[in-house]
Amino acid sequence: MSRILRFWLPLTVCAAWALFAVFGRVLPLLPDEVQLPHILVGPGMQAWLGFDDLGRPVWDRLVMGAQTSFLVAFFVITISVTIGTSIGTLSAWLGGWWDLLIVRLIDIFLAFPGILLAIAMAGILGPGINNVVIALSIVGWVGYARLARAQVLSIKERDHVAAAIALGTRPLRIMVRHLLPLIVAPLIIEATFGIAGIVIAEAGLSYLGLGVQPPQASWGSMIRDGARYMLVAPHMVLAPSVALMLIVLAVNLLGDRLRDHLDVRSAKS
């Protein structure tokens, strides 16, 4: 029972999220179609999640919002993990002045509450999905850089690395072939929890009006619009809220699971 609750259910939720995000475009959905007679109509025969304040079907917009959050999460994670890992690995490998400089830079970035910097960046860059990705990546790389650096520092003195150096292997090859495979597990775990954070951050930015712009849908902007009609049409705020919480909860549960599964070292020692 608990295995179903803790693993299969969250996995299904995440898979559904990804599928709707990727194949949402080919589904016969009409997220932008305004049907004036249906304004604020609740769940019923015509639409199982009802209509919003402009008479657009909430379910169709929810799927569109899934695309937004999935796209943003995918790109931000890819960019931050790549940049962060490269910088962190290089910093630990090179050592000396470079390392000192990068550690200082990391300290300074960590001195900002992450979402605050993202809000300011998104506000200055202006709205739009690209700028959301940029703003969240500017904030996001730091954690992975710190983690990768710490990991590389702990393994770079190992014998197999010394052997690779002795054989005259080029530094880039050492980093990719001999260091990266050993530090990848904690990075994957961190990235999994990172997805939950990014989904919330994207919705937060959109809630503040700094994310994607209408008619593009985001769960955050749907919640903001829905909050105005809370008394007459609670489904408008409930549907995106539940979707958001489900995804975040599912990702967090999967992250827990992954951590238990991948954390082989702590189990052995």
Binding site: A196, I200, A203, G204, Y207, G220, I223, R224, G226, A227, M230, L231, P234, V237, S241, L244, M245, V248, L249, N252
Partner: peptide
Amino acid sequence: VSIPNFVMGPLMIL
């Protein structure tokens, strides 16, 4: 942890 501020807030107001 999974309920963001901007979901919690409107619900509390409601």
